[in-house]
Simulated assay, not measured.
Amino acid sequence: MSNDAYSASMLQTYSVRTAANTSAYFIPHIKPNMKILDIGCGPGSITLDLAALVPRGTIVGIDLNETAINSAKELIQKRNVDNATFEVANVLNLPYEDETFDIVCAHQVLIHLPNESSKIGAVEGLKEMRRVCKTGGIICARECDWRSAVVHPSIPGVLDGMKLIEDLTALKRTSPYGGMARFWAEKSGFISADIDTSASVVYYSSPGEVKWWGETMAQRLEQGSSLDTGVKEGLISEEQKATLPSGWRTWSAQSDAFFSMTDVQLICKK
Rank of each mutant, 00 (worst) to 15 (best):
Y6K: 12
Y6T: 08
S7M: 03
A8K: 14
T13R: 15
T13M: 13
Y14G: 04
S15V: 01
S15E: 11
V16K: 12
T18A: 02
T22Y: 00
T22K: 08
I27Y: 02
P28A: 00
P28K: 01
K31L: 04
M34Q: 13
I36H: 03
I36L: 14
D38P: 02
D38T: 01
T47G: 00
T47C: 02
T47Q: 00
L48P: 03
L50H: 02
L50T: 02
A52Q: 15
V54T: 15
V54K: 12
V54N: 12
R56P: 00
D63P: 07
L64F: 03
L64G: 08
N65F: 05
T67G: 14
A72K: 02
I76M: 10
I76A: 04
Q77R: 13
K78A: 15
R79V: 05
R79W: 04
N80E: 13
N83L: 09
N83C: 12
A84G: 10
F86E: 09
F86W: 07
E87S: 14
E87D: 11
A89F: 11
V91A: 15
L94S: 09
P95C: 07
I103P: 05
C105H: 14
H107I: 10
H107P: 04
V109A: 07
E116G: 08
E116N: 12
V123I: 10
L126W: 08
K127V: 11
R130P: 07
G137Y: 06
G137D: 10
C140Y: 03
C140G: 07
A141E: 09
W146F: 10
V150R: 11
V151A: 09
V151W: 09
H152P: 04
S154N: 13
D160E: 15
G161K: 03
M162K: 14
M162L: 15
L168Q: 13
A170D: 14
R173A: 12
T174V: 11
G178N: 04
M180W: 12
S188W: 00
S192P: 08
A193N: 13
I195K: 08
I195H: 04
S200A: 14
V202Q: 13
Y203A: 15
Y203L: 13
Y204L: 01
Y204D: 06
S206V: 01
P207Q: 01
G208E: 11
W213N: 07
W213P: 01
Q219R: 15
Q219Y: 05
L221G: 02
L221V: 01
G224W: 03
G224N: 07
L227C: 03
T229N: 13
G230N: 07
G230L: 02
G234R: 04
G234L: 00
Q240W: 01
K241D: 06
K241H: 06
T243H: 03
P245W: 00
G247C: 09
R249G: 01
S252V: 02
A253H: 12
Q254C: 11
Q254R: 15
S255M: 09
A257P: 03
F259S: 08
F259A: 11
M261P: 04
T262E: 14
V264M: 10
Q265N: 15
L266W: 00
I267T: 15
C268F: 04
C268H: 09
